[in-house]
Structures are given as structure tokens and as C-alpha cells.
Design a binder for these strands. Structure first.
Length: 285
DNA sequence: GTATGTACCTGTTTGC
DNA sequence: TGCAAACAGGTACATA
């Protein structure tokens, strides 16, 4: 389940391994991952063949590879996407969707997009080398030096939605997914259903600080991984899951107060929290 | 603009 | 044993 730290690990790997490479051939094995590309699979391949990859950039959980003509390959890993740099003769992965034959770097290797559940995808962003227009609505992430802390807290405190939903709103703050949202809320001692406009400024600042910290820690450890679905660009799994305090720990004692962690349904997924450290908000009058 | 709910996907786990 | 339902969850989109 790639969130920001995992995507950043992938970005750094791509920067190192495919920058400067030229795309010799594009093979789309499944149409679904290129569904967002206007020209479909054939248009996708045609737009990329012969282009040189200039680097690897990221905003939130989106990745893009700027190209030598000012366009970019825009990608999202979704739930289960992987970007692998593999030897050309390595056997095809079970869920291999798109392969890019490369020349000009890392002799004998190619770039592969592998995605079991196909929530992720790739497209060509015209003129998107600097910042693809398709993701201009995505906010900066809290690890971005230009992230505006005060503006975020102010916006957070004007919204009536529950604070967990706000953390997952990529237009407000990007890169936070279900796992790190639960962890940041646990660390702050806030219930996810607390409305944004009922937070004090100090609570908003603290929540942002914890979100930033939990993602920094995960990044320094190479990202979280619960199964084989996520691996970084070299096929190496992260291991941050050992450090989680709330997510996935239903029934286990809270690390602060020993009260059993509870799980509730939220937006068609799960929220984990300590009912004592993170009391539910009182009903609005 | 804001709030809220749902579709999209497939492999694995759980329940009857 | 076998089948169905639940589950994992980021994002785009629809609706109010």
C-alpha cells in the first residue's frame, strides 16, 4: 500500500536508474493501466518511443518522469503498483502491465510497471515536465520544503468534515493515506471524526507535526510493507510496519494506556484508534 | 466551493 | 468441500 514514503523510495530509485535512458520500445500488456491516456495504448506507446527520460519527480503519491520534449510520463501506483528496473531477460511478473525497453543506461535493464489490482496507472502528460496539469490540484506534501504550515492549519480549521477525511484530502495535504492518517491521529490523541473547525490551532499544528514525523520515520526506514505487493524499484521490501501504534492492531493494547485498540468502518475502509487516548467528539449542538 | 457516497480492481481471507 | 461475501484503499466522479 504505497503512501508517500514508499512513493518517494520509488522516485529516488527511478532517478538513479533510468535518468538519461532513452525509451526504445513500449509494450502495453494490459489497457487498464493506461486508461487515463487520451490516445489509448497505441497512442501512449507512440508518444514515448524515442524519448529520453530526464529525471524522476513526485507530488504527493503521483510520480512523473520528465522527458526531453517537455512532456512527461505521469504515474500513480494506486494500491498495488510497482515500478521495477529489471534485467531484460528476467521472467515476466504475474501482473506485468507495461514494459519499457531502454537504451543508454544500466546496460541490459528495462523499466516495468507491475500492478495487481490496477488502481494505478500511467499516462503521457503533454507539456508536463515541470508539473503535469492533471495533478495541479494536488497539494504539496508535508515533507516538501515549500509546504505552508500556517495556511494548512488555517484551512483545516475552517472545514466541518472529520479530521481524518481532511488528512486524506489530497487537495489540502498530499501523501497521507489510511495508515499514516491513523498513526498521526493516534500520536496526536485525536479522534478521526473530530470536525476540523473544532480543533484548536495548537492541535492543528501538533497533528501536522505528527503526520510529518511519522512519514519521515517511515521514509528513513525505506517505507512500510505488509506483503509482497509493495517493493521498491529494486524489488526490496520496506519494514516500517513494525513501528505502527494503531493501524492493523485491533484488540491489541494501546502502547500508551493499554486499552484495546478499536476498529471502525470509515469511508469503505477501516480506522484504528485508541478509545481512551482518542475519545470520540461530542455531538455538535 | 464544500460535503458525502460510490465505482473502480483482483487476490486472499473469512463465514456459512 | 464449495461458494459467496468481506476486505484491502487512493482517486475520480456524481450528487446535493
Amino acid at each position: 500500500m504505497p503512501e508517500l514514503p514508499e512513493v518517494e523510495v520509488v522516485r529516488a530509485g527511478l532517478e538513479r536508474h533510468v535518468s538519461g535512458a532513452t525509451i526504445a520500445l513500449v509494450d502495453v500488456l494490459h489497457d487498464r493501466p493506461v486508461r487515463r491516456h487520451p490516445g489509448g495504448a497505441s497512442g501512449f506507446a507512440a508518444a514515448l518511443t524515442g524519448r529520453r527520460i530526464e529525471g524522476a519527480r513526485r507530488r504527493g503519491k503521483y510520480l512523473w518522469l520528465p522527458l526531453d520534449n517537455g512532456d512527461a510520463i505521469l504515474g500513480h501506483l494506486g494500491m498495488s503498483g510497482q515500478m521495477l528496473v529489471q534485467p531484460v531477460d528476467a521472467p515476466a511478473e504475474r501482473h506485468l502491465r507495461v514494459r519499457f525497453a531502454l537504451t543508454g543506461t544500466d546496460h541490459g535493464r528495462e523499466l516495468r510497471f507491475v500492478d495487481q489490482r490496477m488502481f494505478g496507472g500511467l499516462s503521457v502528460s503533454t507539456g508536463g515536465a515541470e508539473l503535469p496539469v492533471e495533478i495541479a490540484h494536488i497539494a504539496r506534501d508535508p515533507l516538501d520544503p515549500e509546504f505552508d504550515d500556517a495556511a494548512f492549519v488555517a484551512r483545516l480549521r475552517k472545514r466541518t468534515s472529520g479530521v481524518k477525511r481532511l488528512l486524506l484530502d489530497q487537495g489540502l495535504i498530499s501523501g497521507v493515506g489510511n495508515i499514516y492518517a491513523d498513526e498521526a491521529l493516534w500520536r496526536t490523541g485525536l479522534h478521526g471524526e473530530r470536525p476540523g473547525d473544532r480543533l484548536t490551532r495548537a492541535q492543528g499544528v501538533a497533528l501536522l507535526g505528527h503526520a510529518r514525523t511519522v512519514m519521515s520515520e517511515a521514509l528513513s526506514q525505506g517505507g512500510t510493507s505488509f506483503d509482497a505487493l509493495y517493493v521498491n524499484v529494486n524489488g526490496e521490501s520496506g519494514y516500517f510496519d513494525r513501528s505502527l501504534h494503531a493501524y492493523g492492531r485491533e484488540g491489541e493494547p494501546c502502547d500508551r494506556c493499554a486499552t484495546p485498540i478499536r476498529r471502525i468502518a470509515f469511508m469503505n475502509r477501516s480506522s484504528y484508534f485508541c478509545p481512551r487516548c482518542q475519545p470520540a467528539p461530542r455531538a455538535r449542538r
